[in-house]
Design a protein around this nucleic acid. Sequence first.
DNA 1: TTTTTTACGTCAACCATATTGACGTATCAC
DNA 2: GTGATACGTCAATATGGTTGACGTAAAAAA
Lengths: 163, 163
Amino acid sequence: MVDVKNSSAPDEELAFDLIERIFFGYRDFVGIADEALVKTGYGRAHHRVLHFVDRNPGLTVGELLAILKVTKQGVARVLRTLVDDGLIEVRPGEHDRREKRLSVTTTGHELAVELARLQTKRIETALAPLPEGSRAIVAAFLAGLVDDKERNAVLTRIQAGRS
Amino acid sequence: MVDVKNSSAPDEELAFDLIERIFFGYRDFVGIADEALVKTGYGRAHHRVLHFVDRNPGLTVGELLAILKVTKQGVARVLRTLVDDGLIEVRPGEHDRREKRLSVTTTGHELAVELARLQTKRIETALAPLPEGSRAIVAAFLAGLVDDKERNAVLTRIQAGRS
DNA sequence: TTTTTTACGTCAACCATATTGACGTATCAC
DNA sequence: GTGATACGTCAATATGGTTGACGTAAAAAA
């Protein structure tokens, strides 16, 4: 019989509540888009690419990889599908023609907005009963979850894609 | 030339900022555990199973499937590995011996706590600079992201696994 | 001008995580 | 005893990735 409470720390407080809320909240939040995407035949990976290209017109492939933290092979198939299907356009960079500058077509933009609309609705519903200033608090908390070294790049990226 | 602004709604406000903060925040938050798991050879799927079994001793396989929203085949390999490796124990249910009641071993608990500790640290760091009451606001927001029909079950589950 | 580096693509092989469908077994409830 | 339930398993398949090797075009440096 081993004592389970054999840790030296005097019963540290672990944030199980928030850890699980993050899990369940994210599970259902992305589920909104997953469901809506069934009709299109696309998956989560397509949504992520479409979203960030929609928000950052002229994004290069390299920047996209940095955002998603995947390898180029990881997005290759997904990106090719979206281009073939006419949701995303590719043009060589003006100053550096090795680059591929990505942007959404009208069709691509419409799908991106449709999904963003659904997710926005969920966010607003979640914020509605909360006190004034909650949006800023939630935003700050979420930014705080990002790796220290990434935070500046992330916030700049988000800011860059403002309406 | 098609007018991009052809929607009837007068320039709806889409919550791009929060949508992206949720993405980046989650990406790095789960990345904390991913990194720590490299040394063990386990992946995200193992972590999820271990976490919920740790927090809900005596959990049945069926309940686990409902929490993770996957099929039994989806957890089969992962669960078998954790049982074979001695991190999770299985016992038949007392009242219903068809059930398999799952619980962590000492080893399993230690790994679960180690991961929770890392994630807790990130959460506390994110909350630290925020005003009093922010924790409750963030908790409420995250619960609000959960599907309406799931929310009661989720909150009950979280509450059940309290320290 | 040659050389090197960069940005990107692609082929091949592979892995983790999941799915659906079919079938089997033990056990419970009636 | 019969049927439903909890679970396991086999097989085939899909999705979303990975590493490694190699190729091309263009930019930057020598």
